[in-house]
Each structure stands twice: as structure tokens, then as C-alpha cells.
């Protein structure tokens, strides 16, 4: 809303390179600018200054609109509560809507629907059902299938596990991780969960007050506990625990993977060493 009293700069001078095939976690508290940033990545918002380049497509401040379409085809966004966006009579039609909009033939869009419904772990029989007869978790999978139907190279996930129970959360994150691995996608996960970021991401970018506050590998980011706290965040529980153990034992252990299993291994080895 430029030129009105409501004008507010939500993002400021962000420079971020995301290499092909990266799993990037974008973290920050509400109002830090992370949702604004991802809306730039597929051209829902245009930058007031600067540019966004994805592959060979570039979107510049003041640039023309024709590049938006190819940008949107490259980058698929799974929004928060994506099941709220389902609208068609059948699951199949809902999934076909995107490809049909981009001029794909009916026959080919149908084949795509059958392919992607399997990718999200639902039986083909679901295709003929109304999306509104499905459970919440199934609806979310259908909505994700609709995004996959566009064959995105970049998958942008805006808090995809919000509102799910703990088991559902793990299921959906494992689904995205296997899609990322198998289809060589570049994945950008917007999350509040340092736990998810530590488990899945190759790189973490922390947003704070509209700026890119920290960016690096998880091991580097988690060394900056004080800086994270200033941004209202903290290191994952695995790292918190290891710090407590280091303090108590006088050791200087460090994690390379941030799973509970890896932590248990490190701690038990340090106990055995002391025992000897």
C-alpha cells in the first residue's frame, strides 16, 4: 500500500542464495517477514526494490507481469491450512484444476491426478470422492497433491503441519522429506519449529524484523544460541540437552545430526569412556 498511511516496509534488503536441491528452513516469529518473503518467491508479491531470480526466470522491481506465470509454475506453495482451499466436487477435479489452468489436456491432467494422489500416500479410490467427505489429514494430503500436480521444481511449505496432532505432524514432514529426496526438489520450509528445522534442513535462514538475521548450516546456527534468543527463538531440544550435559560433565560434545538417537549415542559413549 505504497503512498498510504498503511505503508510499512515488511522486508528490508534481503540477499539469499538457495542452491538447487537444498532443503532450507525459514524460521522467525510472527511478523518477522517470512511469509512476505515466500510470497515474493512465486510472484504473489513483487519486490519494491531488488529482484528475485529462480533458474532462468527473473522478477525485478517495476518489471513486467509476463514472468509471473513461469515463476508460479516453477514454485509450488503449500499454504497454511491448505485444505481450506479445496473447492471442487471431486478430488480428481480439484487436483486437475491447476494443470488445466496452465493448458494441460484433460486426459493428461487425469493421469497426473492419479500419479500425485499416490505420491501423497492416498488410495486411487479417493479420486472420485468429494474432498469434503475426507478427514482433515486426508484433505491436507489432497491439497498437497494439487500443488504437486504442477510439477514444481521448488516446493514452498508455509507451516504445513499447523493444527495436526503429533503423529500427523511426523507423517506429513516425512512425506515432504521423501518427496524432496526422490524428486530432487528444492524445498523451502517456513516453520516455528526448530525441531523440524534441525531434523530436515540442510540450511537454516532466520528472519527477524524484516531482515535476514542468520543464515547457515544447522550446526553453525545452533552455535548462536544468544542471537537466536534475541529473535525469540531457541536451539532444538537435542542441543539444549547436550549443552546441559556438557556443563555437568565438563565435556565438549557436539552433534552433527540432531536426532534423539544421535544424541543418545553421543551421551552413552561419553559415559562409557568415563567408565573406563
Amino acid at each position: 500500500m505504497e503512498g498510504t498511511p498503511f505503508e510499512r516496509r515488511a522486508l528490508h534488503d534481503i540477499n539469499l542464495d538457495i542452491p538447487d536441491g537444498t532443503f532450507l528452513a525459514l524460521i522467525g516469529h510472527t511478523g518477522s517477514g517470512k511469509s512476505t518473503l515466500i510470497q515474493h518467491l512465486n510472484g504473489l508479491l513483487k519486490p519494491s526494490a531488488g529482484s528475485i531470480k529462480m533458474g532462468s526466470t527473473e522478477l525485478k522491481a517495476g518489471g513486467k507481469k509476463q514472468d509471473l506465470k513461469s515463476l508460479r509454475k516453477k514454485a509450488g506453495i503449500v499454504f497454511q491450512y491448505p485444505e481450506h482451499q479445496l473447492f471442487e466436487e471431486t478430488v480428481e477435479k480439484d487436483i486437475m484444476f491447476g494443470p488445466r489452468n496452465f493448458g494441460v489436456s484433460e486426459e493428461s491432467a487425469k493421469q497426473t491426478a492419479a500419479r500425485v494422489i499416490e505420491m501423497v500416500g492416498l488410495p486411487e479410490g479417493v479420486l472420485t470422492k468429494s474432498p469434503f467427505d475426507l478427514s482433515g489429514g486426508q484433505m491436507r494430503r489432497v491439497a498437497i497433491a494439487g500443488v504437486l500436480a504442477m510439477n514444481p521444481e521448488v516446493l514452498i511449505l508455509d507451516e504445513p503441519t499447523a493444527g495436526l496432532d503429533p503423529a500427523g505432524r511426523v507423517e506429513i514432514m516425512e512425506l515432504f522429506y521423501s518427496l524432496h529426496e526422490r524428486n530432487n526438489l528444492t524445498t523451502i520450509l517456513v516453520t516455528h519449529s526448530m525441531e523440524d528445522a534441525s531434523r530436515y534442513a540442510d540450511e537454516i535462514a532466520v528472519m527477524h524484523k524484516g531482515e535476514l538475521y542468520l543464515h547457515g548450516k544447522p550446526t553453525d546456527i545452533f552455535n548462536e544460541r544468544e542471537a537466536l534468543k534475541k529473535a525469540g527463538l531457541d536451539v532444538p531440544e537435542t542441543v539444549q540437552f547436550l549443552q546441559k550435559w556438557n556443563e555437568k560433565s565438563g565435556l565438549n560434545l557436539a552433534l552433527t545430526k540432531f536426532t534423539v538417537e544421535e544424541l543418545a549415542k553421543q551421551v552413552s559413549q561419553s559415559l562409557k569412556k568415563r567408565g573406563n
Binding site: 549415542k265 551421551v267 552413552s268
Partner: peptide
Amino acid sequence: KLSEALRHQGV
């Protein structure tokens, strides 16, 4: 979860 994983490691 960590208690369990530690026991699994023989602690």
C-alpha cells in the same frame, strides 16, 4: 524419548 533411546544404547 531420550531416556528410552539411552536405555537402548545400554545406559
